[in-house]
Simulated scan of single mutants.
Amino acid sequence: MQHLDQAVAGAHAKLERRIQGYLRSSGLKPSCHKGCYACCHALVTLGLAEAEYLRARLSPQILARTERVGHARLEAIARGKGQPDFPTRYFLGAHRCPLLDEAGACSAHPYRPLACRGVLTELNPRYCAPGAVLRLRGRARLEYEHQLRGHHGPEHYLKIPWQRSEGLAQRLWEQEQAIRGFTVIGELATLIYFCGLEGFQQALKRGARATQLYLRSAGVLGG
């Protein structure tokens, strides 16, 4: 839907402006850079509109890989979706994002979801690797904690970009509900995989109830 594509692009542009304004006013400079992908092992949550927007802009090779990963993740998500610590445990398993290219750069960086855009730090990016903070002991732990300030949280990530990305994601979901009548919120690779399935597309056309039944049959509804 064109209106949804415009809503997604508008939300992305708005978050970028807000983050850049915050960084200028705070004097903070992120340590994140191209090829730094320590944080790119998490389960990324996005809505259906962002998944459709992203899917349409992936190269055939990256799309095929993302669909394979999404299909493989179905069982894990269906099994663990009701467990509050499932996202954390999955991140600690160091599952590489399928959007990364061979050099470790995001192949879809201009179109990445709001959830990815809000993850920034000005500390050493080695802290972002799965389990890195949990493994800190003794002097290394004290050194890490000594660097934390009021603008951090959760952990060493910049609080304001994180909060603004979450707020804009919520508003985007509300926009989609107003346009489509409902939305689906899920994990990046899995939702992109679903978007390529004829059964899922037919369910979307029939509305919220049919989509709920489809996702329930796949074992991923709720959680």
Rank of each mutant, 00 (worst) to 15 (best):
A132D: 09
Q2A: 08
T121K: 00
G153T: 08
E174F: 03
Q83P: 00
P30A: 04
Y37W: 13
H95M: 06
Q175S: 08
R57D: 13
E155I: 12
R24H: 15
L188C: 04
A169P: 00
H156T: 01
T211P: 13
H156W: 07
L158D: 09
G35R: 08
E176D: 12
S107Q: 12
R117M: 08
L23R: 04
G27M: 03
L92P: 05
K205R: 10
E50M: 06
G80R: 09
P30I: 03
F182N: 05
Y90E: 15
P161T: 07
H146W: 14
E102Q: 14
A140S: 14
Y127Q: 07
G82D: 10
L92Q: 12
L213G: 06
H95T: 04
A78L: 12
S26H: 11
T183H: 08
H3M: 15
P154S: 00
F91W: 13
Y22Q: 03
C195I: 05
P130G: 00
W173R: 13
G223E: 10
P154T: 00
Y37F: 15
R112V: 01
S107N: 11
T190I: 00
A11R: 07
T121V: 06
G222K: 03
P84N: 08
H71V: 11
K14I: 09
P60N: 13
T211Y: 09
R57Q: 14
C32Y: 03
H109N: 15
A72S: 14
A218Y: 12
V44W: 13
C195T: 14
Q6H: 09
L136N: 06
L63D: 00
L58W: 07
A178E: 13
G35M: 07
R79I: 09
H12M: 10
E75K: 14
P130W: 04
K14T: 14
Y127K: 05
R79A: 15
A203P: 03
H71N: 10
S107K: 10
G47H: 03
P161M: 01
N124I: 00
L136P: 02
P30G: 02
D5A: 08
R126E: 06
S25H: 10
E176Q: 11
Q83F: 09
G150E: 15
Q20R: 14
C128K: 09
R135A: 15
Q175G: 07
Q20K: 09
L142T: 07
E174C: 06
L134W: 08
G131Q: 05
Y157R: 11
E166L: 08
G222A: 04
S107L: 14
T88W: 13
S217G: 10
G186R: 04
A210P: 11
G153I: 00
E102G: 10
I77C: 07
P125D: 02
H33S: 01
A94Y: 06
Q6S: 02
W162L: 14
A218W: 13
P125G: 00
L136Q: 02
R18K: 07
L136D: 01
G118M: 00
A11S: 15
G207P: 10
Q2E: 15
Q201T: 10
L114P: 11
A178N: 02
R126V: 06
A129M: 10
L221M: 13
A51D: 03
Q83K: 12
G10T: 00
Q212D: 11
P84K: 11
E102T: 13
T66P: 02
S59A: 05
H146T: 11
R216Q: 15
Y193E: 05
P113K: 02
L100C: 06
R135F: 06
A76P: 04
